[in-house]
Simulated assay, not measured.
Amino acid sequence: MFTDSGGATDAVQLTDVRKVYGKRGNTVVALDDVSTRFGRGTFTAIMGPSGSGKSTLLQAAAGLDQPTSGSVVLEDRELSTMDETELTELRRDRVGFIFQAFNLLPVLTVEQNVTLPLRLAGRSPAKGRVLTVLEQVGLADRRKHRPAELSGGQQQRVAIARALITEPAVIFADEPTGALDTRTARDVLGLLRSSVRSAGQTIVMVTHDPVAASYADRVLFLADGRVVGELHSPTADAVAERMTRLGAYADEASQPPSAAVGGQH
C-alpha cells in the first residue's frame, strides 16, 4: 500500500523496495518491502530509531544504493534498469544533496562551490542563475569569499545553493542541521521550507530532530525497515510523541522481552 497519492505529480516513487545486506545465514534486512511516494513540490521528513532504515531509504531513493528487489522511479526513470554511468548522470543532473558535513572545497569561492556541479557536467549556468540562487540563500554579498571565511550556517547555505543550482527534481538532505546551533538550524530549515513554497522544490530529509521535522509537510516514520506511520502538517510535540512510541515499538519488535531498551537515534 502506498502512503501518498501518486501519478505524474511524483518526484520519486518506491514500490516494494527491499534491501538486504550480508550473505546467507548472516543477513540484515535494512528495508522490508517499503512503498511510498514523494510528491513534487513537497517537503518530507524521514524519522525513526537507530537502525530503522532511514539512511538506506534515502540512498535507495537517490540512486546511491541499489535495492535487493523492488522498484525506484525518479521522475519517469526506473533506476534498476540504469547502469552506473547513467545513474551518475541522473544524480548529477536531477538530484541535489545536502549533508551534515558541508562538503565544500576550501580553495574555491562561494560562487565556484555553487557552480561546481554544472562545471563537472560541462555546463554553464544560465545568465543570472547563480546570483538568483545566492540571493535566495542570502549570500549574494559573500560570493567571492572562501568557506573558511564563513560561519557554519553560511557554509550550509552554500551547500543548499549548490544543491539548488541544477534545478533538481528532488533534493535529499541527510541531517542537514546536525552540525548547527539551534538558531542557525532554524534559519536553514526556514530556507528549505521557503524553497518548497516559492520554487516548488521537492525535499526529502532524514532527521532525528522533531523540531526539524516540524518544518516538513509530512513525516514518514520507519521502524525495523518498514514504514509504520506518517504525520501530515506535523508539530514538534506530535512528532516527539510519535517517536517515543516508535522507540518502544522498535525495541519490542526486535528484542527479546528481557533485553535492555536501546536508545533512539
Rank of each mutant, 00 (worst) to 15 (best):
A213P: 14
V206H: 11
V219K: 11
A253Q: 15
A248P: 14
A163I: 03
A179R: 11
E241Y: 08
T202G: 01
T202P: 07
V158M: 05
T207P: 10
L246K: 15
L180D: 09
D224N: 15
D181W: 00
L191E: 05
P210E: 00
Q155V: 05
H232A: 10
V188S: 03
R197F: 04
D224W: 10
S254A: 14
P176C: 00
A185K: 10
T207M: 02
L220Y: 06
V239K: 11
A216T: 06
T207I: 07
D224T: 11
A240Q: 03
R218Q: 11
T202N: 03
T202C: 07
V188K: 00
F172C: 02
R162G: 06
V228L: 00
P176W: 05
G229N: 07
A159M: 05
H232D: 14
D224A: 15
E175C: 04
A163F: 00
P256D: 13
T244D: 13
H208M: 06
A163P: 00
D217C: 04
M205L: 06
Y249M: 15
R162P: 06
G200R: 09
A173N: 03
S198P: 00
I171H: 01
E230F: 07
L246W: 08
E167V: 01
A238P: 04
I165S: 11
A179D: 09
M243P: 13
G190M: 03
S194H: 09
E252Y: 15
A169H: 07
L191V: 02
I203H: 04
Q255M: 11
T177Q: 05
A216I: 06
V219T: 03
Q255W: 08
V227D: 07
R242T: 15
L231Y: 08
E241C: 09
A185P: 05
D181Q: 01
Q156E: 02
P257C: 05
L231D: 09
Y215F: 08
D251V: 11
E230G: 14
V158C: 04
E252F: 15
V204A: 00
P210G: 01
T184R: 05
V188Y: 02
A248H: 15
D209E: 08
A169I: 06
P256N: 11
P234Q: 03
T207E: 00
D174G: 07
R193I: 07
